[in-house]
Write a protein that binds this DNA or RNA. Structure first.
Length: 760
DNA sequence: AATTCTGCGTTTTTT
DNA sequence: ACGCAGAATT
């Protein structure tokens, strides 16, 4: 009743149709900013109003952010009680949920962990080493990328063994098999496995599939253009014969081809379901006419797309500003100055502004400039908090507690902090494990059985596992935060950092405290609460999911990260040939995907769009000259407005036109780093010399006790040749240190015990 | 055994 | 420029 009125008021005819067409297959081609999320949320609300149980509705998204947003908006429409029971999840979290629930059918243990890409690389490196494969030809990242595409296509190791056509492919097949074997042994799945295992579960257990098919009467898929083959199969399995499947997407926004997304999934939907009902949403509610005209013009250069053209009843708006920067620093200065102006003139808040770039590497220069100009900002993506060493260490401990088979974590922490379990010990255990046909983890738990192991190593191992096992017993009794505190204390990890007293160690302690805060937060929320749940949450969440719209800060992110968002002011940077479109995409017909990426970036802007490129850019350590992106040429010039960089004229003091800022900019750009780096070098040498000097001074007072070398003695070094001992002293370990002046090699500081020297 | 040094390949995008 | 792996150094 109330909802009905709201539907009529809030939705345009096409949107309304999409909301009300609930039975049978439906595809909604939803252009950028056409109210796609609105349709999905109202559709869910409408289904609930019709009396459909919330348990019977599933909405699948690609990001947690999209899932959260959708869930919240449904909540606003219908109230908490019902909204919470609707399955609004990402593909991966949906898969995990099903797998955990149906663990009895899996060959994995119920506490299986999710391996992230760093873990995957660790495992793959082991596989490569174990098969004695040439690690120049087969690099972990590359092999994993291939394996990932097999998984996306549901090609098993066995399948691929049959398909391999040459030695290289056979090797890949072997690596694939071994990799899967190891993951199973470690009781871990990678991201792709989550989906593959679910599909396989449904294939081998028709009754289980039937259960989910019966349960989920209405299925909606967001961003359908980004589904890959596994996801496609999964969706079709779930939809079953009932076919109450509604997919929403936009072929022009398909930007995950590199991850196996198959644009044909959306283009061929009408073939898969001949009776499909098709709705197109072409009215844009987000952007100005200018921005939209630019976007339309650009995307029209792609072939093989569904013809469509967005329109809007919004204002014409300002033309799109273009800036030709001298280099990446100049570009950053332009962005910073423009944002400062906007905020000063009260045309925008910081949080209204977003800066997009093609690659993460571009963010640093912009960040530096923002710091200099005092602009609050927040970078999403990039080096994540959870990728720092200390965080990975504590996580590895937690993972090992949750999952004894997790060899990747075991190796990581077994000697961290140092407890006398070195490479030799591990190597011996490995040897024994493979000869006995047992896993490394299993063998290490009973060190007395390992041949050739010294008492010290045996005791160290026993101590280590006693510690781990004591935490395992605590697992359910104590909160995750309690566990973290115990681990940090009992391992001596924290005290080891505390004694270091370096700035770096301080930062690590701070990071660990921050992590503890995250854990305490999790504990206090009291949902689920188990260690496994906690670890799973971390594995499936990314930085970009933590976007806080309330914070007044400029947002910096890659264009991929920006998908699904909108900002009043958008700065799209680095529009250069080779960067955007990226070199890696120039060969094949991947330029179209780059163009779609550019289209996505442009259509994030509501009010004002800025495009910039740099004539010269520092890349891979040297300065390269760049050409403007081809995308500029694909936009009609009448919508563009070049920005004359007069704001920098003050630096140079010349009076006119374009020569001035170039002079001023170059002076700034090249002068600072040149003197800076030179000073850095000199300072480096100076510090080394003075340090040596201090040691010399100290050496005078320290009397050499059990000396085998004396000051003034002539010695011969294996590599440095003849020299004269200038000073001797006793080092911290009681070993003799000597300072020798060699004839050819110069002055050296050596440790008598190790250095290959003898009296001449 | 652990730390520092050196040479090499490398970066597109992420659940 | 940077991070990593293996070598050199302490």
């Amino acid at each position: 009743m109330e909802l009905e009125r709201e539907l009529d008021r809030e939705l345009n005819p096409q949107q309304l149709e999409a909301v009300k067409y609930t039975e049978g297959p439906l595809i909604v081609f939803a252009g950028a900013g056409s109210g796609k999320t609105k349709v999905l949320t109202y559709r869910i609300a409408h289904l609930l109003k019709l009396g459909v149980s919330p348990f019977q509705i599933m909405a699948v998204t690609f990001t947690n952010r999209a899932a959260t947003e959708m869930r919240e908006r449904v909540q606003q429409l219908v109230g908490d009680g019902q909204a919470n029971d609707v399955w609004v999840r990402t593909f991966h979290s949906m898969a995990v949920r099903i797998l955990r629930r149906e663990e009895r059918y899996l060959s994995y243990d119920r506490n299986f962990l999710i391996y992230d890409s760093a873990d995957q690389i660790t495992v793959m490196k082991q596989c490569i080493a174990e098969l004695r494969v040439d690690d120049r030809k087969f690099r972990p990242r590359g092999v994993l990328a291939e394996i990932s595409s097999f998984k996306n296509e549901l090609v098993t190791p066995k399948d691929y063994h049959g398909m391999a056509r040459n030695v290289r492919e056979e090797t890949i097949a072997d690596l694939y098999s071994l990799y899967q074997k190891k993951l199973l042994q470690h009781n871990a799945m990678d991201f792709d496995d989550l989906l593959v295992q679910t599909v396989e579960l449904f294939r081998s257990e028709p009754l289980v599939l039937e259960h989910y098919q019966r349960r989920f009467q209405y299925i909606m898929v967001d961003e359908y253009q980004d589904t890959n083959h596994v996801q496609y199969v999964l969706v079709h399995q779930l939809a079953g014969d009932k076919r109450n499947l509604c997919v929403v997407g936009d072929d022009d926004q398909s930007i995950y081809g590199w991850r196996g997304a198959d644009i044909r999934n959306i283009l061929n939907f009408e073939r898969d379901f001949p009776d499909v009902y098709v709705i197109k949403l072409e009215q844009n509610y987000r952007s100005t006419q200018c921005i939209l005209a630019v976007a339309n013009a650009l995307i029209s250069h792609n072939k093989g797309r569904k013809p469509k053209e967005l329109w809007t009843s919004n204002d014409v708006g300002d033309p799109v500003s273009c800036y030709q920067a001298l280099d990446e620093k100049d570009e950053a200065r332009f962005v910073a100055a423009e944002i400062s102006d906007l905020v000063e003139r009260e045309e925008a808040l910081y949080r209204d502004c977003a800066v997009f770039y093609r690659t993460h590497a571009q963010s640093r220069v912009i960040e530096e400039e923002f710091i200099r100009s005092g602009i609050p900002y927040r970078i999403y993506g990039g080096v994540r908090f959870y990728e720092r060493k200390e965080i990975k260490d504590i996580l590895a401990y937690l993972r090992l507690v949750a999952n004894p088979a997790d060899e990747v974590s075991l190796r990581r922490v077994i000697n961290e902090p140092r407890r006398g379990i070195g490479d030799t010990t591990i190597a011996r255990a490995e040897e024994f494990a493979s000869s006995a046909g047992r896993s490394l983890a299993a063998v290490l738990e009973h060190p007395e059985e390992i041949p050739n192991l010294g008492n010290r190593a045996v005791n160290a191992l026993k101590g280590f596992f006693q510690m781990i096992n004591s935490w395992r017993k605590l697992d359910d009794a104590v909160s995750v935060a309690g566990l973290v505190e115990r681990i940090l204390g009992e391992t001596g990890y924290l005290s080891a950092l505390e004694t270091q007293k370096t700035v770096e160690a301080e930062t690590r302690i701070e990071n660990l405290n921050e992590f503890l805060g995250v854990v305490q937060q999790y504990d206090s929320e009291g949902i689920g609460g188990t260690l496994v749940d906690f670890l799973e949450g971390l594995a499936l969440v990314t930085d970009i999911d933590n976007y806080e719209p309330g914070e007044d800060a400029v947002v910096l992110m890659t264009i991929h990260g920006a998908k699904g968002m909108e900002f009043p002011m958008v700065f799209l940077t680095g529009l250069e040939e080779g960067l955007f479109p990226h070199v890696h995409s120039l060969e094949e017909n991947e330029v179209e995907e780059e163009r779609r990426l550019c289209y996505v970036a442009i259509t994030r802007a509501k009010q004002k769009l800025y495009l910039s490129w740099a004539i010269r850019r520092f890349i891979y350590g040297n300065s390269e000259y760049k050409l403007p992106s081809r995308f500029f040429k694909e936009i009609p010039q009448e919508y563009l407005c070049p920005v004359v960089p007069d704001r920098f004229a003050g630096h140079g003091g010349h009076g006119d036109g374009s020569a001035v800022p170039s002079g001023g900019g170059q002076g700034d750009g090249s002068g600072v780093p040149a003197t800076g780096s030179q000073a850095g070098h000199n300072a480096g040498h100076a510090i080394k010399e003075s340090a040596a000097g201090e040691k010399e001074a100290a050496a005078v007072t320290a009397a050499p006790s059990q000396t085998s070398f004396q000051v003034g003695e002539t010695v011969e070094h294996k590599k440095f040749g003849k020299g004269v001992v200038m000073e001797t002293k006793t080092g911290p370990g009681g070993d003799m240190e000597i300072y020798v002046s060699f004839e050819t090699a110069g002055f050296k500081h050596l440790l008598a015990k190790y250095a290959p020297i003898k009296k001449a």
